[in-house]
Each structure stands twice: as structure tokens, then as C-alpha cells.
Amino acid sequence: MTEPTFAPRVFSGIKPSGGLTLGNYLGAIKRFVQTQDAGTESIFCVVDLHAITVWQDPAELPGMTREVAAGYLASGIDPERSILFNQSQVAAHAELAWIFNCVARIGWMNRMTQFKDKAGKNAEKASLGLYAYPSLMAADILIYHATHVPVGEDQKQHVELTRDIAAKFNHDYKVDFFPLTEPVIEGPAMRIMNLRDGTKKMSKSGESDMERINMTDDADTIAKKFKKARTDPAPLPETPDELKDRPEAKNLVEIYAALSDSTAERVLAEHAGAGWGQFKPALADLAVDKLAPIADEMKRLMDDPAEIDRILARGAERAREIADPVLARTYEIVGLVR
């Protein structure tokens, strides 16, 4: 059988585990929309199987899954031009993950820094799923023969593992079946930081809601959070290099750049010498203009969960049309009787 040629195809996913933030929007969803609009074949997923690697309340998980789907849709993902679905509706993800569990090496998994970060000192009590989930992530990508994955720096290691798994599978079975997927990391504000502590990543699990911008925040809340964001006494400098020891200032400038489709250099050229009493209201106005309509549309969508479920189900049908033949050929290559 002739093995496939790999046309450009993007895959990426977001975990439904506690609400979407500005970090999800600028670091991921906004870029997904740009990829879609550039005409690249795109598959976007709500990775609910990854969510349950740590305990999730079964009563809350459906709502969190729908919220992520609503975030995709409200931001501009078109379910006719892209494929949008939740992971658990396509069984091929989990089936290919088992094959990859048998390809990946324990030493590779032991090098995964995110497991160490998330498990901490209680690694012995962490789930096997949390330990092995990079193998499932590889399956998420390779079940669609995806050639590119937009990721933040903290996920780059997992895409590198995906390449290792693909290369070892192809080598062991003497095929050229899985592509060596490329991580796509570009542009400003890939890592959005906490509004109260610029050394920490913005997180949906932070102690205070004032630390983050939620994608469901209304206009007044968005403006209030930016105006109360922590800063330092000095005015804005002329160049980004002068921000390297000013994490809160650097974060706000990069957020402004990302929201305005600009760069930190251009933002500082426009605002150099300005105090925070001038810059933060300008940032708040920009953020409200860009984000409040998304929050309004998310609310409208989440008021009709049946429509979100219909969109996800149709996306899953389209995803299976791609995934099932890849899985069938994988089983054939491995020697499993079907």
C-alpha cells in the first residue's frame, strides 16, 4: 500500500478545566482563527480526555467543555471551514494512544517537565493518565497526520515527543506513515502573565479573579482589572530591552501589542514616556473593544447548549472521516487482525 503524502494540516486543542482566560485567547484561539482565515486545513479540539487526568466534577465537565467550544466559536472559528469537536467523541484518539504507549519509552516520559510540575512531591499519587498524557497528545496530532501544531513554549516539549514517537514508529515498522510535526511558535504575547505578579503565568486556577482576564468577563470587569493591574513607578521606556527587569510593565505592553496586532517596539514608539495613568486606560479601552463582543457572543452560545452539542457532534463526524482510515492503516502496519 502506498503511504500518504503530507499536505499542510493544523491540529490544536484546549483543555476544559476551569474557564478560558486572555492567555487562552491571545496564546491560542486568536492564532487558530488566523490560521483558519489563511486557508490552512484546520482541526480544533476540546481535549476533554486530557482534562480527566486530574479529578473533574462530572456535573461540571460538560459545561466547561461547552464553554471552550463557545470560546472557539465566539472568537471566529467557523465550524464549516474548520473541524471543531470534543476529543472523547472520536475513539481513535484513545486507540492510537495505546499503540503509542507501546512505542514511547519510559525514559522519554520521565523527561517531561509538565508532569513533574503538576504532580509535584506527590508524584506517586498522580494518575497514570497524567504521566502518560503526552502519548495521548501525540495521538491527538498524528491521528490526523497533522503537519503543524500552534503551541506555547510550555507545550513545545510535547510536540518534540510527538516527533520522536512518529520517527520511532516509522523506523520500527519500516514505513513513512506519520509526519514529523512542526511546532508553530511565533509573535508577541505567547505567554500572558498574571496581572498581579508579572513573573507568574496567567492561570484560571489563580487565587484572585483580579489576576486574570476571563473570556466571559463583561466590559466593566475587563476595564476594572486592567486599570487595577500591578505596575511599577517608572514611565514606559523607548525599547523592549528596557523592560527586561520590569515584568508587570513588559506583560501589559505585550498584551497591548497582541490585542492591536502590533509589536512591543511599535507600542513603545507610540507610548514612550507615558505614565501608567495614561497607558492603562488606553489598554483597558482596547481590551474592551476586542474582548467584550467575544464575551457577549459566548454568553449567547452557552444559553443554547443543544446548538453547541450539535456543532461538536457534526465536527466529530468529520474528524472520524479522517481519523478512522489512519487508525485502520496503523493497525495493519502493526499486524493487528481487524
Score class of each variant (00 low, 15 high):
P4M: 12
P4W: 07
T5G: 08
F6A: 12
V10Q: 08
S12H: 04
S12N: 12
I14K: 01
P16N: 13
G19D: 07
L22R: 11
L22Y: 04
Y25H: 07
A28W: 06
D37L: 06
S42A: 13
S42V: 00
I52C: 11
V54E: 07
L61F: 09
G63D: 15
T65G: 02
A69S: 12
A74T: 06
A74P: 03
G76A: 03
S88E: 02
A92K: 10
A92N: 08
A92W: 03
A94W: 05
E95S: 08
L96R: 01
A97G: 04
W98T: 09
I99Y: 14
F100K: 12
C102S: 12
M109D: 06
N110W: 00
D117Q: 12
G120S: 09
K121L: 08
A123F: 03
A123C: 05
L130G: 06
S135L: 15
L136K: 04
D140R: 04
H145E: 02
A146W: 03
V151R: 06
Q157D: 08
H158E: 10
V159R: 12
E160W: 07
L161C: 09
T162K: 01
T162M: 02
T162G: 01
A166D: 05
N170I: 04
K174T: 07
V175C: 11
D176C: 10
D176S: 15
L180I: 08
T181Q: 05
T181D: 05
V184I: 11
G187V: 03
M190T: 12
R191C: 06
N194Y: 01
T199Q: 11
S203Y: 08
S203Q: 13
S208M: 15
M210G: 08
T216I: 15
D217M: 01
I222E: 00
I222Q: 01
R230C: 11
P235N: 13
P235K: 05
E242W: 01
E242I: 06
D245H: 05
R246T: 02
E248I: 06
K250G: 07
K250V: 10
E254I: 00
A257M: 06
A257W: 05
R266W: 01
V267N: 05
V267R: 06
A272G: 05
W276G: 00
A282Q: 14
D285I: 11
D289I: 01
D289C: 02
P293H: 09
D296F: 04
M298Y: 00
M298A: 05
K299T: 15
R300I: 02
D303M: 02
P305N: 02
P305D: 03
A306W: 03
I308A: 07
D309E: 11
R310A: 13
I311R: 00
G315W: 06
E317W: 06
R320D: 02
P325H: 13
L327T: 14
R329D: 00
V334S: 08
V337Q: 15
R338D: 07
